[in-house]
Amino acid sequence: MSAPEARPVPFRGGGFVRRPRRLVSLSALFGLVLAWQAASWSGLANPLFLPAPAMVAAALWELARSGALAQHLLASLGRVAGGWLIGTGLGLAAGLAVGIFATARAAGMPLVSALFPIPKIAVLPLFILWFGIGEPSKVATIAAGVFFPTVIAAAGGVDAVPRSLVRMGQSFGLPAWAIVWRIVVPGALPSVLAGFRITVAIAVILVVAAEMIGADTGLGAFVLMAGNLMRTDQLLAGVVVLSLVGLSAAGLVSLAERLLLRWR
């Protein structure tokens, strides 16, 4: 029997690696807009149903030039910021309490599970009865939408803090506040920031919903009005601005993650 021939081992690895391809992302977006414009030029897309990007851009420019954009944007951003901050503040407090205290967990978690799935848009009329038709009901709607996911993220974050770290803190005689502030809170931070990523999007979605009732300024009110008036170019211009707001908010969260979670 002769020695069998040596065969090279075929390469089976590779792939499934995350590599940033910024150019690809950009050209995908650009290509989509281009295809859309081409469809409008060729008459494939009825401008009534799908206005061309150029028309949307013109509407956007007109909005910016007239100062209406700044007015709507400021009104919406104010509501988003107010509602998000209130919802996040209360949510973090409740989430930490639920994560730390067994009593708070027993009392709070079923409540959160029961109330979280309620669409906040559906209870908007109720909020209007409670808080009036002005700003408070809009801010409250956003705050309520932000509150529950924050509670869940914060409580989950506390759960994810290894108990051995808490025992370590106790073994060095750290007072309870220091254990919470120096061990539990930073340990819960990754989960909390992941929650922020979701809650900023929720806040943008809900500001549109909240501005459906009793608002004459704000991006949501503007988009809704454009829809009522069948101004599809303005409607899409508003949608573009909303999406940019969402993108910027997500960018802020990414920045916060980079700054606060350098240790990961």
């Binding site: 009329p125 038709i133 009732i213 009793g214 004459d216 009005m225």
Partner: peptide
């Protein structure tokens, strides 16, 4: 001051 409320019940 016109207040849009979406529906007659509202």
């Amino acid at each position: 001051r016109l207040v849009p409320l979406q529906s007659i019940p509202n």
